[in-house]
Structure formats: C-alpha cells, structure tokens
C-alpha cells in the first residue's frame, strides 16, 4: 500500500487566524491537485507560535459551529484528503491547549493536546496553555497513526506510548526555532531533531513524518527541514531549510512488513516489564 504524503512547510502570520486559514486552504488546493492523500501542517499553523496574550482571541473550538474549524472540515470533505493541522483549542471549560486535529472526510478522527509544554530558556508555553493528559494512537484509512507536537517528541515516552498503542506512522509537527550556529552545515538544534527522528524510526521500525514551520517571530527563525524517515531509519525526504514550500512524497507502507520481518523489535518489546519496573520505580520514589 502506498501513501502520497504532503508536508506544508508554511510560515503562519502571528495572530491572524483568517489569513492563516486562507493559506491552509491554498496549500490544500495545491496538494489536492498533486494527488496528496494526507497533508500535514506545522504546530500552531493556524495562529503562529508565540501567541502569548493573544491566546483567547485566536483560540477555536473543535466543532462545525466554529467557522474556521468548519472550513477545515469542509476542505477535508471536498478534497477527500486527510488533513492534520495545528491550532489553539479552547475546550468547554475555557481551558486552552496547543492542539493538532486530524480530519478525514469532513469528520474529526482525533485531537491531540500537547502533553509536554515547553517552559524553559526561550519558551514560555505553560504560562499560557494547559497541558494535555492523553497519548493515544488512532485508526485512519492508511493504518494506525499517532500525533505528537514538538516538545512531546523530545521526550521518548510520547512516541514509545504511541508505538505501544499501535501507531505505525508517527505524525510530528513543530514550531522549532533555529539555534546553535556553528561551523557545520546545519544548526545544532536541527541536527538533534533529525537524529532523534531517525532514532525513533529505527527503534520503532516505523515511519516518522515531521513538519516544521519556517519564518520569523521577534528575531527567532524557524528552520523548516520537514522530513520523512522510513522504518529502517533512512531519511527519505528532508534537507530543505528556512523557506516555505509544499513537500510531497509517496511512501510504501509495505516497508513496515519487510523491516519487521527482518528486525522484530516490536514483537520482542516487553511493555509489561516496562510497566512492572516503572511501578516499582514510582513506588520507591513515592511520587
């Protein structure tokens, strides 16, 4: 089975949801014209990253009553393309989350709330957002997948849980700022992300798809470099840094079968041992 993927490496305009919606719809049209079956946008693609005190005014509700959300649902129905995008989600009790939605055929298949808020150094997410408390894989017409947002996949626990929950394709998105300029051909921050994504694909013998934004916010540059890694840890797509672009690639999902026949890491994984030992460790630490 083959899957034609699209990665919208876009530059959202800070706080301008209407303009960003128009940009999403333009990318969707462009991707649909190229036969893309699953299109992925970056973290907070509908709002920009450092929204700060703009959070209440740029947040949307994940229902057809919300005109922005409805337009995205309609786009997934109209084009027949599955879409994953980033937004500020306001729940029924007025809590705000950094969220990804996965839409298919006019329906919401899953919403992920960022679990690991990034609040150190140049980041200040926990000041403005509530943290998600679930890590769940879900079924799509391409197989079972899992979503994680930026800091979520700097922690190995998130992709591990998604793997254990059946995800064969990790869909990652981020608003990752460039940092660590040195003599090499990429920022050290970009090298790190590419390294861990290749490691996840290798450890979990699955596909890792990563869409990172580009552009600038108050002097921070976002490096793009969206990538796709196959179950052998080989980077199939990547290396386009800093500029807006739509990347497309066809991946062969049968590679999962071939790699796992050769390397049965999933078969031999022992989550019950992990659970037992974690319970012991957590009890000992009295946490």
């Amino acid at each position: 089975m083959r899957l034609h993927l699209g990665l919208a490496q876009m530059d959202p305009k800070l706080g301008d949801v209407q303009r960003n919606l128009e940009k999403h719809l333009a990318y969707i049209e462009q991707a649909a014209a190229q036969g893309v079956e699953l299109l992925i946008f970056p973290e907070l693609s509908m709002t920009g990253y450092q929204v700060n005190d703009l959070v209440p005014e740029v947040s949307i509700r994940a229902s057809a009553d919300d005109p922005v959300y409805a337009a995205m649902l309609d786009a997934s129905r109209r084009t027949g393309m599955d879409i994953m995008f980033g937004f500020v989600h306001q729940d029924q009790r007025q809590r705000f989350y950094i969220a990804d939605a996965y839409l298919s055929g006019g329906e919401t298949l899953h919403i992920h709330h960022k679990v690991y808020l990034c609040t150190y150094g140049m980041f200040d997410e926990a000041r403005y957002f509530d943290a998600g408390d679930q890590v769940r894989a879900f079924d799509t017409r391409f197989g079972r997948v899992g979503m994680a947002i930026c800091e979520d996949f700097w922690h190995i626990s998130t992709p591990y849980l998604l793997w254990m929950d059946g995800a064969d394709i990790l869909l990652l998105n981020s608003a990752s700022p460039s940092r660590g300029l040195d003599a090499s051909d990429k920022f050290s921050g970009s090298r790190w992300v590419e390294l861990v994504n290749m490691a996840y694909a290798s450890f979990f013998t699955g596909f890792v798809v990563h869409c990172n934004r580009v552009g600038y916010e108050d002097g921070k540059n976002f490096w793009g470099g969206s990538s796709v890694v196959d179950p052998n840890g080989e980077m199939l797509l990547g290396g386009d840094y800093f500029d807006e672009s739509l990347h497309t690639i066809t991946i062969d999902l049968n590679e999962l079968h071939r790699t796992r026949s050769r390397l049965p890491l999933l078969r031999d994984e022992r989550p019950e041992l992990v659970q037992r030992e974690l319970e012991r460790i957590l009890a000992r630490n009295n946490r």
């Binding site: 460039s178 300029l181 040195d182 003599a183 920022f187 600038y216 540059n221 800093f242």
Partner: peptide, 22 residues
Amino acid sequence: AHKLTINPDIATKVLTGFIKDE
C-alpha cells in the same frame, strides 16, 4: 575557538531573511 567558528552561508541566509521579514 573552533566552537566560535560559524558557517557563514547559514548566518547570511537567516540574517538576510530576518532583515527582510522585520
């Protein structure tokens, strides 16, 4: 000194983009 060595192409790309953007 080696750690203070920079890739000037990346610096130029990011800084010209920053100037344009701002």
